[in-house]
């Protein structure tokens, strides 16, 4: 079991200035699994997600304690190469945020900033990434149109393709389908099932049924604490904690 763990946190605490946002989070995340993170607004779930690739470091008042170990390396160590970390730990946001460039350039961007110039290699990577994001068939004949000409669901999959192009190990998704219609949502959910064969996925979602559908494990956060972390099938049929039960059945939220 332990050797399949890709992310491990030890007594991780996080503060925005004087406000403590996360308290003693201890979690072990298995490789090639999907972990859903649920909890009411302000519970710390996005803060936790963003801690996993140090996105919170962009906030001046942020500080943290404890350890986040990814592949055996503590990413909170001051010598960590943040750029290299974010290449390994990709992120997809709630609102699709393609660059104001063509479809092609959006996916090629990460490769170019990593110094890759070989056109054949880039072409091949773009096809692979778009296929990986289940978008290739829809855009292969219009790689040079603006990303903004795509539908909302396609734009979100484009952002996934952009994240895949730099070959991450872990994909963080912050409510990736909350702005999409049910059909586009379903496509993203199907895609997640495909992606987990190659990547480890952690997804924050407000949609309980979505967590139930896509994730292997579910983590429930409340007021900055990890209340329950369980296999999804147990979490949604027989949660161990009364607070979890009350939250997932909509008795508070």
């Amino acid at each position: 079991m332990e050797k399949n763990i890709i992310i491990k946190t030890k007594n991780f605490n996080f503060y925005y200035g004087d406000v403590k946002a996360l308290t003693d989070v201890n979690i072990k995340i298995e490789k090639n699994s999907v972990t859903g993170i649920i909890g009411p607004s302000g519970c710390g779930k996005s803060t936790f997600l963003r801690s996993l690739n140090l996105m919170n470091n962009l906030i001046l008042s942020a500080r943290y304690e404890g350890q986040i170990i990814i592949d055996g390396e503590d990413i909170l160590h001051k010598d960590i190469d943040v750029v290299a970390l974010r290449r390994r730990v990709g992120m997809v946001f709630q609102k699709s945020n393609p660059f104001p460039k063509t479809v092609f350039e959006n996916v090629a961007y990460g490769l170019k900033i990593n110094g890759i110039t070989n056109r054949d290699f880039i072409d091949q990577k773009i096809e692979e990434s778009l296929k990986g994001a289940a978008l290739w068939e829809e855009v292969k004949d219009r790689l040079n149109v603006s990303a903004f000409d795509l539908s909302g669901g396609q734009q979100q999959r484009l952002c996934i393709a952009r994240a895949l192009a730099v070959e991450p190990e872990i994909l963080l998704m912050d409510e990736p389908a909350s702005a999409l219609d049910p059909t586009a949502t379903l496509k993203i959910e199907e895609l997640i099932q495909e992606l987990k064969k190659k990547y480890t996925i952690i997804i924050v979602t407000h949609n309980m049924q979505q967590a139930a559908r896509v994730s292997d494990y579910t983590a429930f956060f409340m007021m900055g604490k990890l209340v329950e972390y369980n296999k999804t099938n147990i979490m949604f049929t027989n949660p161990e904690n009364k607070i979890t039960e009350d939250y997932i059945t909509g008795r508070f939220g």
Partner: peptide, 9 residues
């Protein structure tokens, strides 16, 4: 309602 937990049971 797509019930969960005790509601589902």
């Amino acid at each position: 309602r797509q019930p969960l937990a005790s509601d589902l049971r």
